[in-house]
């Protein structure tokens, strides 16, 4: 039990080698499609957001409320230092490239749910100097290790979606009701949506998917052709945020 020095060195060496290998060989080419080229055996979790259903319930923020509650996300009450895992954004802000003046009013004037896209080629992971944020091999979730993060905010600069939040101050006084089962964060680290990795481990769906009164959020393994999310993506037109940047976002918006 416990990591001894030799084990540590082996791990350190292996990590360096894999990173080297990846860097030299190039990870996947930008914008490759996990459905076509990804091995079917590997899980790739993704989410589809039914904008049609979601906008039927204007002003609903159930997903934000439950997520921020169970994850002890503070309410700083100051837009500059705000911390958000999942929230609603104007269509134009979320999809600057898809927006135009003559767009249907119901799309243009409604807000859309945004969260970390759990990109398949995540720039935040690429830039992090400590591997505090990484893409999980087993299911593609982009994870955070708050124990290791040095708070350099390079990932904040690298994420094209504003998904990453920095703790400018101690968040604890700003958490109304602490959930004892989940840690809070400390000042000086970055945090973001983790696709409810802790719930998935218990066989539960992400809290937002569970709670959504409109059933507008569909979550599943996109590498499984029989999954609900694959079926729905097959039958409905979907868009993604800033796909041109080659990050291969895994949140699909059904229009």
């Amino acid at each position: 039990m416990g990591i001894d020095r030799r084990k540590f060195l082996t791990i350190a060496g292996l990590t360096t080698l894999t990173t080297l290998g990846k860097t030299v060989l190039g990870s996947s080419p930008a914008g490759h499609d996990p459905i076509e080229t990804g091995s079917q055996a590997v899980k790739r979790l993704a989410m589809a957001i039914d904008m049609q259903k979601c906008r039927q319930n204007e002003g609903c923020v159930e997903c934000t409320k439950i997520c921020h509650k169970i994850h002890n996300v503070p309410d700083i009450g100051n837009s500059k230092e705000e911390i958000k895992w999942i929230w609603k954004e104007n269509f134009e802000a979320a999809f600057p490239n898809q927006h135009h003046d003559l767009l249907e009013d119901e799309i243009k004037n409604n807000q859309v749910v945004v969260l970390c896209n759990h990109c398949d080629d995540p720039p935040c992971v690429k830039v992090c100097p400590t591997q505090s944020t990484w893409k999980r091999e087993s299911d593609g979730i982009v994870m955070m290790d708050m124990h290791r993060c040095i708070g350099c905010r390079y990932c904040v600069a690298g994420c094209p979606y504003g998904s990453r939040n920095f703790n400018f101050r101690d968040p604890r006084p700003f958490i109304k009701e602490t959930n004892p089962e989940y840690p809070t964060r400390t000042k000086g680290v970055v945090e973001k949506c983790n696709f409810c990795a802790e719930r998935l481990a218990d066989g539960l769906l992400p809290a937002c998917v569970d709670i959504c009164p409109e059933k507008a959020l569909i979550f599943g393994n996109i590498n499984d052709p029989k999954s609900e999310i694959r079926q729905i993506l097959k039958s409905r037109h979907s868009i993604r945020r800033k796909p041109i940047l080659g990050t291969n976002p895994q949140i699909y918006y059904l229009v």
Binding site: Q131, C149, I150, Y154
Partner: peptide, 20 residues
């Protein structure tokens, strides 16, 4: 840095893909 006392993490977990 938000966590300056962890700066050694850059050396402990060298990330060759990070320009930093």
């Amino acid at each position: 840095m938000g966590q300056p006392f962890r700066v050694q993490n850059v050396m402990l977990y060298p990330s060759l893909n990070s320009p930093m």
